[in-house]
Nucleic acid binder design. Structure first.
Lengths: 194, 194
DNA sequence: TTTTTACTGGAACCATGATTCTAGTATGGA
DNA sequence: TCCATACTAGAATCATGGTTCCAGTAAAAA
């Protein structure tokens, strides 16, 4: 066969992550990613057809990593404990991986949709299917049935509230402090109507 | 003196707002703003030295409009009622002015800081001084003293929580529904430690 | 009516950064 | 050892969109 590759997909995704953490979304140029990986731009294009593909793949990889602990926590047979565990999982993950958490904040869904590379599947919308389904299941387990209002309330409590607790810190470049957990838990429980 | 102007500052700011609502932040090119106002690009540059200045001025104008009802509500002599009124003011303003609310979401503080035009003052940080001070005053009124933890909690409850309730809807291009108010109020009160 | 002057128009120019292109180059297998 | 095959290199090219520039133009004041 051919020669052994010097750079793999993940090398460039990791480089892009580091650049994003340091320079923000707009700083993630192909030249910057290549320099960060100590590679020439040509090698980046050998792996990723375009900048859009690179960014989309980084986003997808990060979303999956993020969803894993969240979904595991939410699946707890006891709904109340499941909610608490889910909140803690999100806050804990963000504290352990602030750069990756920042990537999730940096992209806007609209930007992603606008530049979504068709070769990565139909649409980024599908990526959240697992979460959407888990939230429906949670709503059913908690409230007996899945009403539109109930689902919205659950989404607010389990997704938007922890996001709100993190946003300020991640946006400012800080690792989120542990002290936000109490307020986030209290707010989330209240939103669930306890 | 000279002739009467055909376009004023606000014509272009309004045009930029409409473009932003329609095409997102990245769609706000100078050519798009000019076209939206039915003016040539030269006229835009006659009013605004650069795109950065235009966007920064739009942001500042919008922030001021947004802060006004929030600060008025928060100044209520009764702290509990002040918090509720502040939440309602934010949610109500966003529902009445979804495009402008979206502008506040679309910009990232980091992007603004990175491109801040020096002629607009020292820094965008100063813009939130009034809010920061109001939150300190609120913390004092509510908890007797201003501790770091108390201030963080108040900020989360009165700024981050309503933001969280709005984000999903504004980002998706929808006008936020009234139904989010109950959950936001409950979450906010809980975060304040009631 | 003439002059003055700020404003209008829009084509040309430039900077940035994505993408392409064509030689090399290293390595597994024959 | 030698060939076939990916992969590496990075200079050159292109596209996009911000910015400049200067010749008109219209209204207010004399």
């Amino acid at each position: 066969m051919g020669r052994k590759p010097r750079f793999g997909d993940d090398d460039f995704l990791d480089a892009a992550l580091r650049v994003a953490a340091r320079a923000g979304a707009s700083g993630v140029t192909m030249a910057a990613v290549a320099a960060e990986a100590a590679a020439p731009v040509g090698s980046v294009y050998h792996r990723f057809a375009s900048r859009d593909v690179l960014l989309a793949r980084l986003w997808v990889r990060t979303v999956h990593r993020f969803q894993e602990p969240f979904l595991a926590a939410l699946a707890d047979p006891d709904p109340e404990r499941g909610a608490d565990r889910a909140i803690r999982a999100v806050l804990g993950w963000a504290r352990e991986h602030p750069d990756q958490a920042r990537v999730l904040l940096l992209h806007r869904r609209e930007d992603l949709v606008a530049h979504w590379p068709t070769e990565l599947g139909p649409d980024p919308a599908g990526i959240n299917d697992a979460v959407r389904e888990a939230l429906r299941a949670y709503t059913r387990a908690r409230f007996g049935r899945v009403s539109s209002a109930g689902l919205e309330r659950v989404t607010f409590a389990l997704v938007d509230v922890p996001y709100a607790a993190l946003r300020r810190h991640l946006g400012a470049g800080r690792t989120p402090p542990r002290s936000i957990e109490a307020a986030a838990l209290a707010a989330s429980r209240a939103a669930l109507g306890d």
